[in-house]
Amino acid sequence: MSGSNLHPGLNLGARHGSAHEGAETVVFGFWIFLMSDLVIFGLVFASYLTVANPLGMAGGPGPADAFDLRSIFVQTMILLTSSLTFGFATLALRHEKGRTVIAGWLGVTLLLGLAFLTLELRDFAHMIEVGAVPQRSGFWSAFWGLVPLHGLHVALGCLWIAVMLAQMALLGLVPVVKTRLLRLGLFWHFLDLIWVAIFSIVYLGGLMP
C-alpha cells in the first residue's frame, strides 16, 4: 500500500480512480481545518483550566455537585462505539461493499450520535437543576463554553451524516460523495478524540478523590 497513499488517514485506494485522486486535495484541506478547530478546542480547554479552582467557582457549586460519572461513562462508551461503527462504514466504502452496507453502518453511527446527545442534554438539565449554570460563576461559564461546544460539533456531525445518507440515495456513490464520506469520517473520529480529553480533564479530573 506504500506509495498509493495520497493523504494522511485511510485512503480510498487506487481502484477508486478519480475519487481517490480527488481526495488528495480535499482531504488535506479538511485536515488543516480540523487542526484549526483543534486550536479552538485547545484554547477553550486552557481557559477552562485557568478557572478550575475555588476562585473561579466563586462559592458556587463545584464539579462534585453536578457531574454524574455513570452517565459520562455511558456517553463515553456510546461515542467510542460510534467511532468503531463509522470505521466499518469507511471500510465498506473502501472495499466497495455497496450502498446498503455503508448506509447501514452510517445509520447505526447516527443513532449512537443521537443517543449521546440525548444523554448529554439530560446531564445538562440536571446541572441546571442544581444551579451549575454559566451565569453562576466563571468556572461554569468555562464548562458551558467547552462541553456544549463539543456537543454542537456532534450535532453538526449528525446533520452531516443525515445529509450524506440523502446524497447517497439521490446521487449514488459518485466521487464527490465518496470524498465527503472520507472527510466526515475524519470529523467523527476527531470528535471522539476531543471527547477523550473532555472526560479525562473535565469529568475525571473534576471528580478525582
Binding site: 488517514g9 485511510l10 470505521g87 475524519l186 473520529h189 471522539d192 478524540l193 477523550v196 480529553a197
Partner: peptide
C-alpha cells in the same frame, strides 16, 4: 488513548 485513536481510527 489519543495515540490509539490516531493510529487505528485516523490511520496516522
Amino acid at each position: 488513548q489519543i495515540v490509539v485513536h490516531l493510529r487505528f481510527f485516523l490511520h496516522i
